[in-house]
Nucleic acid binder design. Structure first.
Lengths: 344, 344
DNA sequence: CATCACCGAGAAAGCGTTTTCTCAGAAGCG
DNA sequence: CGCTTCTGAGAAAACGCTTTCTCGGTGATG
């Protein structure tokens, strides 16, 4: 039997014995070091192949001081946005031989710091995705997390690229689109209170209100999933608004489903817009007007920024800002006469 | 400065020096070994806290022979089914202090074996999710992957729990439902050819045909995403079938969207069913009749099986079989008179 | 008072690699 | 032929931790 090591797995030592050389030589051969006699190299390779030897990555990591793994912390793995970021990140990282370790904080912001630290120590770098923690807390832990890439949050720390989507501009574009269609009474179905992207949307709407004093913009409480939108039907109908800006596509879909059940026509009676342009958005009935965020690309960019950090390359553009693109589909249409005047 | 080690990070040695004890003692204290003098322990803890010492997991892994990480290989991270499994797995594993490393094979079956091996070596166990590789290849690599949990595939190897969804039964339930509604000409929009779950559906349909000779069941080529369903509109209309069994909910949604564009009424003209019951399914218009698979629970179960393997517990139920539950919604309805007779 | 058992902490040996250091032996040169 | 230089491979250190081994020192017991 060749099983010698305590773990039961065959190691470099087994190969060394079989090939009649030292571990050092086996290591050299496995790493393509050419200062080794071709004949011996061949013998080592034969032995390795015969034993099906594969280097233990943990030992390797310890010696090399790197794990070829990056971590990502997301607030909620059920959210399509984070799924897409994860996908883009994983795909891009894989092309450079890196793997991704995931940590889901389940929207528990108090856990984020611990999760992030733990994940960081296991990996060569960390992507912190839309953290829910406070600015103060973020600033405090950021230094210990380098190399770090931030998504949808910013920090004053240097060397921490930030990829942010301009939700403020996006929501203004959507509101503008509705106003162009004649809507004068809008309502915003807000997202999770701790979400920075929700704050950006709110700021965008404030700016919009300032620029369009004739338009009413109501604020309604919401969340980030289907059910939130579905449950908001009453509040939406009560508001008398004809143009609804949902926090994201999921909320918009839930809302449209609820409106459909009530016999309210979209966009005949009420126009609905989403945000994100998830793949489903083009297959709803009616198809969903939304603001498209190149979200998978964002995950990919996150990796490229991370790679630059790991390789200590000069980074000409540390971080970037993504502009959502207005995607006009069938869920938004001309405003009908305001319902407050409908009884006349 | 306390930075001594080559990596720049502070290690156990720094704490030892600061507390005036040996590394061994620091290690003992950090691991809650009570054979150490309380006063010394306090001194060590104080030093550790002051230096913000956190044990290096790589060194720890090497010494302990475990990484507290499990790997998962999925054919396509963009597929909601695998996302849900990942979510359930990650959540359950996290509760036991384990993290998940992901590997996406992008439906390239030739990559799967390498990916699986690599991921396995980095982790304490592996979840192989609906692998596309051949049975022969699977059998070949399975022994080297233990502890291993298989999803939607089976193996002859012992000690490899298999979690499989009974797609065959599910598709028969759906077909039966349509036949009960009076449909006599059905069509199946197939999934990826290499998918085992697709094979199971096909087998189920064969059984169904045998049991219902009066019902026609046509086979149409397809895939697993929206676009597949959307592009299948012509084929579906040409087939003359009034009841369409889509491979999954995504395909069904794409198809319904396409039918809607053509002015075909669902379920008035054609009934459509999906599979999986993804969250979106209850918010489509019309809401989607489908077969619900407890997919997140499946991910969770995968962890429980894995945990039993890692802990070498006796496992009373190595693997299990999940029965989809028929979820009748609005996309299926009574068959109208066969269109072949409509010209009369 | 001497011996034994025991307790607690340091020394050292792993865990599986990579990489530096070291040193035979061969080759080259005068 | 003797010296130096170079090549290539083994010995050993390092990576950061856990854990066994060892042993000085204390308290207990006969």
């Amino acid at each position: 039997m060749v099983r010698r090591s305590a773990t039961g797995r065959i190691g470099i030592a087994d190969v060394a014995v079989k090939a009649g050389v030292s571990h050092a030589t086996v290591s050299r051969v496995m790493n393509g070091n050419f200062t080794v006699d071709p004949e011996i190299a061949a013998r080592v390779r034969a032995a390795a192949a015969e034993l099906k030897y594969q280097p233990n990555p943990v030992g390797r990591s310890l010696a090399l001081g790197k794990t070829d793994t990056i971590g990502i912390v997301v607030p909620d793995l059920a959210n399509p946005t984070f799924q897409a970021i994860l996908r883009g990140l994983s795909r891009a990282a894989a092309q450079d031989g890196y793997r991704v370790l995931i940590a889901d904080s389940f929207e528990v912001s108090s856990e984020e710091a611990i999760l992030a630290g733990e994940a960081r120590r296991r990996c060569d770098g960390l992507v912190l995705c839309a953290p829910r923690m406070s600015d103060a807390e973020l600033e405090e832990i950021v230094p210990s997390l380098h190399p770090l890439v931030l998504i949808n949050r910013t920090t004053t720390a240097a060397d921490v690229p930030s990829l942010v989507v301009d939700y403020g501009q996006g929501v203004q574009d959507l509101a503008g689109h509705l106003v162009d269609l004649g809507h004068t009474r809008l309502a915003f179905l807000a997202g999770p209170p701790r979400s920075a992207s929700n704050r950006l949307r709110l700021q965008g709407l404030e700016a919009f209100k300032a620029a369009h004093p004739q338009v009413e913009v109501l604020m309604l409480e919401g969340g980030s999933d289907f059910d939130t939108g579905h449950e908001a039907v009453d509040a939406v109908l009560d508001s008398g608004a004809t143009g609804i800006l949902a926090f994201n596509d999921l909320v918009a879909m839930g809302l449209m489903s609820g409106l459909h059940e009530r016999g309210v026509d979209v966009p005949g009676d009420i126009s609905v817009t989403g945000f994100d342009d998830i793949p489903f958005a083009r297959y709803t009935t009616p198809t969903l007007t939304t603001a498209a965020v190149p979200i998978t690309e964002l995950g990919q960019q996150a990796w490229h920024q991370m790679r630059a950090l790991i390789r200590k390359e000069e980074n000409d553009a540390p971080g970037s800002r993504y502009q959502p693109r207005l995607e006009i589909r069938a869920s938004s249409g001309p405003a009908k006469a305001p319902r407050t005047a409908a009884h006349g």
